[in-house]
Structure formats: structure tokens, C-alpha cells
Amino acid sequence: MSEDPVVKTVNPVKIYQNGDVPVPAVRGVDLQVEAGEFVAVMGPSGSGKSTLVHMLGGLDQRTSGEIWISGKRADTLSESKWALLRRRGVGFVFQFFNLIGNMTVADNVELPALLAGASPREARQRREFLLGELGLAARADDPPARLAGGEQQRVALARALAHEPSLLLADEPTGNLDTRNTRDVLRLLSQVHKKGQTIIMVTHDHRAASCADRVISLLDGQIVDDAPIPAARRGPRRNAGDVIELRG
């Protein structure tokens, strides 16, 4: 089971119907993401990157093609089966955070854990741990609206991780953040990734994409480039004292 790629797609196609005019959003994106990979999906707006990641999480139904999640065929699942799959194995982070406004930060984070079947006590422990790690322990009882954008996205990240998903899908997680908060969120994603989390992140921000191991560029619903980001030319630096020789 562990040999199966976390995500594998075979020629998935998504065509939206705009009135009578079919609008293809994704046109056969063959993709394979192994466990522990951090993949950035890039492309200009309208290139189908959000649609792709929505399909991978079952939020959107593919028109044709196959989607395999952890070795299991997923594109044929019903909406409810997808929901079960999500609550057990997929976490989502969105551009607009999408925290439940009526619930406290704590409840927001505990919700997916409870959904996945954790007892309230386990969910609370998990939440305390995550919020503590993200530096938000003090805001647990606040409503999300009282948090700054960056804090909200960190809560959203905690929520996405609350049920320990095997796949974290992030749709423009930094799209609505300023530079500083972008840096914080990206650092968190990198750290989560270093611990082995498989991440697929949609972004149009190159700086965000550079945190990934691998960048997939989409254009008009098709892959135009799929390659690992090359390692630093001179190997890892041992400390910051080294001189950076930035070309240009």
C-alpha cells in the first residue's frame, strides 16, 4: 500500500458547461505524486490549476479520466464517498481561509478530527497541540473574525492537519496574504512537509512555488512543465555566514 502513489491521475478532463458552450478547464493532466512529495501547481489564472486540485479532493467531479488516491480509484466515488475519503485522508486549505465564522478557533480545528472519528478528548488534545505549534494557543476561544488574515490561515492549516490527512491540498493558500504572512504560512508548509506530509499546492506565486520539491506548470488545462526544482548549485550551506553569490 505504501508503494502506491498518494495521487495518480490518468488523463482527467474537466469540461464546464457555459450555457451550450463547453469550456474545457482541465485537458488530460497525467500526474503522479508520491508520498512525502511537495508539489506546486502553477499557471496563470484560468489554466485549470484550481479545478485540478478540486478534482483531486473530490470537490469537483471530473468529466472523464481516472483519479487514484492512495492506490484506490476515486473518480467513480459518489459525493458522499468522497466526503468520507476527505475526512479520513485529505485536508484542504483555501485562499479565503473558509473558517466557520460561528465557531471558535478551537471548534474549527477540532471539527475534522471529530469527523474522522476521534473522541472529543483526542480532538481537544490534537487541537491544543496544533494550535500550540502554530503559536495560536491563546486565540483558541476567539471567533475567527477577530484574527488577522495570517492567523486565520494558520488556523485553517491546523484544521486541515487536525485529522492527520495523508494528502494536504492547498488552493492558493497565500493568495490573500501580505508578504510577511505569506512567508509564515510557507514556512509552516515547508516544516509540515519536512515531517513527511504530502502536499499539493496550487499557487500563482513563484515564491510560494519555490518551497515545493517539484513544480507543475499548467497552461490551458495542460501540463507544460513538470520537473523537480534543482537543488542549490553548491549544495546545502552549513551556515548563513557563507557568501551568497547571487547571479544577476
Binding site: 500500500m1 505504501s2 498518494v6 508520491e34 508520498a35 512525502g36 488516491i69 492512495s70 484506490k72 475519503l85 479520513r88 485522508g89 485529505v90 478530527a113 474522522a116 472519528g117 476521534a118 473522541s119 483526542e122 480532538a123 490534537r126 485529522h163 492527520e164 490527512p165 495523508s166 516544516q191 519536512k194 515531517k195 513527511g196 506530509q197 504530502t198
Partner: peptide, 23 residues
């Protein structure tokens, strides 16, 4: 960063997240 903790590599083992440890 976080080297000392439980990074036990159970990440990709299946969609049925068993980590929540629910009874």
C-alpha cells in the same frame, strides 16, 4: 526544526487516517 519528535513516517499509509486513534 522538529527533528526530535515523532516523525514516524506513517504519513502515506492509506486514506483511512488511523492517526486520530478514535476508539
Amino acid at each position: 526544526v522538529g527533528d526530535g519528535t515523532v516523525g514516524d513516517g506513517t504519513v502515506g499509509d492509506g486514506t483511512v487516517g488511523d492517526g486520530a486513534g478514535g476508539s
